[in-house]
Simulated scan of single mutants.
Amino acid sequence: MPQLSRRAFGTLPIGLIGGSLFGGGLISSSSAHGATQEAASAPAAVTPLAQIRLGRFTVTALTDGYADMPYDYFPGRSAPEVEAAASAQFTARPSGVRFLFNQYLVEDGERRILIDAGAAGSIGQTGQLPQALAALGLKPAQIDAVIVTHMHQDHMGGLVLGGKNQYPEAELYIDRRDVTHWTDPAKRNGAPDFLQTSFRMAEEVVRLYPRLQAIDGEREIAPGVSTVDLTGHTPGHIGVRIEDGGKSLIMVSDMIFPVVHPAATDVFFLFEQDRTAAKAMRDRFFPRAASEGALIAATHMPFPGLGRVVSDRGQMRWEVADWALQD
């Protein structure tokens, strides 16, 4: 198995700044009372956004929406065990564990890099990423690069919505192992039904994005933005590390799932393709992340998906990072 580079982790605690943008405008303290009265009288569309600063980078957490994953989608534990754990963490829903679909926009004043493109309505209540970008005053054509952490439909669906190239000016980066796997007819023919949408979308991505770069291993995409090998969940599952000015963040995609991680590395998700490799990667990753206090962003954790793995009396747990606005 590939070894996780030491560069995958930050060594210093990171100060966070951020906020929630509602309907495209920041709710200030002076307008909060009026907004509360309006919300009480009629439901309002909410576009949640949260920002942190890492040196010269602004990283904005966005979300494409959510879906509830059935309790029997977690091999390694019975459905009643997963439901009980979800209930204890107040994330249980009648139809399963609530999964968010978080994406992250990385800006340095010169380039805009989007990490993953969401499910775009192919799963659950998704398809909100364009609205989230619009709340920032951005259109997909203003994105310079998209890094796809792996080729599951909830990470690339937004690239090919409507059978069109939705990010026409963007360079696209995907690990070569995933490109090879998801465009292999033999792999598709032998795959279960729930993976067929991902195979179909992968073919559309390759067809619609002539600027696709199938990358090998860990690579610097732009100064301070690099990929990290997290293979296991899929053959070419990668993370993205952002670092500048002594601060860093690693976006770990599907390395961590809500309720079951990081407490147990022998619990998986139905879509996981190499459980042995996924467990081995988590067994290495979680203790190191805890020892170094790495700030982490995770696709499916509660919005904005920012937190740390901590060791609490020998038990690994997820500690939500404070992203509230700070001076």
Rank of each mutant, 00 (worst) to 15 (best):
residue 224 G to T: 07
residue 319 E to T: 13
residue 199 F to R: 00
residue 243 E to V: 02
residue 320 V to Y: 15
residue 130 P to C: 09
residue 173 Y to P: 06
residue 252 V to Q: 14
residue 173 Y to C: 03
residue 53 R to N: 14
residue 218 E to W: 07
residue 93 R to W: 14
residue 9 F to R: 07
residue 302 P to V: 00
residue 321 A to R: 13
residue 206 V to Y: 08
residue 265 T to V: 09
residue 166 Q to G: 06
residue 57 F to L: 10
residue 91 T to R: 02
residue 212 L to V: 03
residue 30 S to N: 11
residue 276 T to L: 11
residue 41 S to I: 06
residue 270 L to W: 11
residue 224 G to I: 08
residue 312 D to R: 12
residue 183 T to R: 01
residue 306 L to P: 13
residue 61 A to N: 08
residue 96 G to W: 01
residue 156 M to N: 08
residue 271 F to T: 02
residue 223 P to G: 09
residue 203 E to P: 04
residue 110 E to N: 14
residue 145 A to C: 08
residue 142 Q to W: 00
residue 276 T to V: 13
residue 160 V to D: 03
residue 20 S to G: 09
residue 143 I to P: 11
residue 109 G to D: 09
residue 61 A to L: 11
residue 81 E to M: 05
residue 292 E to C: 02
residue 309 V to K: 06
residue 199 F to T: 01
residue 294 A to P: 10
residue 35 A to R: 12
residue 147 I to N: 01
residue 126 T to D: 03
residue 258 P to G: 11
residue 99 F to G: 10
residue 210 P to Y: 05
residue 178 D to S: 05
residue 158 G to E: 11
residue 282 R to E: 03
residue 145 A to Q: 09
residue 207 R to P: 07
residue 234 T to D: 11
residue 60 T to I: 01
residue 67 A to N: 10
residue 219 R to E: 15
residue 321 A to Y: 15
residue 317 R to W: 03
residue 165 N to L: 01
residue 199 F to E: 01
residue 276 T to F: 07
residue 190 G to V: 00
residue 134 A to S: 08
residue 237 H to G: 06
residue 190 G to H: 00
residue 110 E to T: 15
residue 169 E to I: 03
residue 19 G to I: 02
